[in-house]
Design a protein around this nucleic acid. Sequence first.
DNA 1: TTTTGCATTCTACATTTGTAGAATAAATAT
DNA 2: ATATTTATTCTACAAATGTAGAATGCAAAA
Lengths: 121, 121
Amino acid sequence: MELSNAEEQLMQILWRKETAYMKELLEAYPDPKPALTTVATLLKRMQDKNFVDYIQKGRSREYFPKVSKKKYFSKQMNGMIKNFFNDSTAQFASFFTTESDLSEKELRELRELIDRQLKNK
Amino acid sequence: MELSNAEEQLMQILWRKETAYMKELLEAYPDPKPALTTVATLLKRMQDKNFVDYIQKGRSREYFPKVSKKKYFSKQMNGMIKNFFNDSTAQFASFFTTESDLSEKELRELRELIDRQLKNK
DNA sequence: TTTTGCATTCTACATTTGTAGAATAAATAT
DNA sequence: ATATTTATTCTACAAATGTAGAATGCAAAA
């Protein structure tokens, strides 16, 4: 089961905070903030989908992500690479490199990084 | 307005074919194929969303994408980079480079590509 | 202890998405 | 000329999504 847009937005907040109470989540929303019950509904659905859990603290709950941002992101990326580049990561990489408008500096840094990666092989 | 999942799948088919009649679209679906009316509904919605158009040919229609795969993909990517990497393309690139499991050969090719990019600057 | 604030659960409802049957029309094959 | 195939439009409906009010309970502040 995937996250919907509204759910993913909330997930982003939760990832940033790592752990948060209802009130903090609400505060973290940009204006116009949704109703508290809206967030509650989303959290409930996200729990059902197994993306979020909580620890009862007194009478309220400390929510936290059950899926790491990194893991979630990787899955998204793999989906896109599969659909758009026929499952070829390399093909994606080359598309990205030529199409993204990285600055010269950024390109150099990226090359540096690749060199380091290569040393690890 | 964004494409839904089912719509995006159809879009992928249309991008592959570049142009296609109803029948061809249907044939291109993997089994179990949806009902023809399902595809018709999707096409209609995609027209409303301005992702698809057609040319009347005799009594049927030659459908074609109004948005290129590349453009669509870029938009998706930018969205993800914005959400996950704080809008930093470079940060994404470095994450990608370290986390993707590109082979040594692929890494070398990527470096080549970056070199060529750099020469263009 | 009365008010105020906050969280939770329930209920609700409009919109969007996934899926397709029925009716209709035209084109083609028999 | 009739049956068959194919496409189109209309209608429909369940599920998912976005959004939030009402009711309830409890805790902290006044």
